[in-house]
Amino acid sequence: MEATQIRIQDLNVWYGSQHILRNINAAIPARGITAIIGPSGCGKTTLLRSINRLLEETEGMRVSGQVLLGGVDIYRPGADVTAVRTRIGLLAPKPFPLPMSIYENVAYGPRIHGWHSGHLYEIVQRNLEAAGLWDEVKDRLRTPASRLSTGQQQRLCLARALAVEPQVLLCDEPTSALDPISAQGVESQLQRLKQDHTVVVVTHILRQARRLADNVMFMWLGELVEEGTAVQLFTSPNDPRTKAYLAGSIG
């Protein structure tokens, strides 16, 4: 039995009067990859963004309930939002490099957290390697990040997220903007990262979920319908909605 890294308790999210997430209760195990699947608009992105408190940057979003990281509620009064986001990284569906060089993009996080000492270059190199981008950019670290291809940008965003040494990495459709080869690259990086990180991946691609996931959460209209190990959920789903979704999408 693996230790639980993140426990979500009675999580509700409203946008104005729209009830976007309803009574979510879930446990995300430490290490390994947890995939969140479900039809478009069911609240996958919203759930992901509530796990690193990015949701509150959207005006009008109201959150209630608890998200426990290692037993401590990240929504407790007085919790340091920046510390939460440093421990729980997020990879967005579309890569957004920061308006600076490749090197500065990766160094950005370590710099703002004051880890800027002599070994910043090593930090940059290590994380670009971890994201599988180092060989392609090592000779042009000082060029603007916006000149990279989309696939390279997405891996840069991964390196940038890793550079602040998060325990948890949330990925929102991390390959949706990528060609199959780049996508495969990102997938294999995630496979490696799961050895010592807790990875949560939102995906529309069921085959990707099957390839990557150790655990799966299935969402439907703002509810968490079912969660379980990948084997259990894909081979013998309990809920009829899960069955229908898996069957329908395969066909």
Binding site: N52, L54, E57, T58, T82, A83, R85, T86, G89, L90, A92, K94, F96, P97, L98, P99, M100, Y108, G109, I112, H113, C157, R160, A161, V164
Partner: peptide, 27 residues
């Protein structure tokens, strides 16, 4: 400036001020 760009900075644990100075002003 797109929200997603600012959020990229917030997601790394940057404060609003740090994001304003280092990302918004540059962009």
């Amino acid at each position: 400036i797109p929200d997603a760009l600012k959020e990229a900075s917030y997601a790394l644990g940057a404060t609003h001020l740090e994001t304003a100075v280092k990302v918004i002003l540059r962009q």
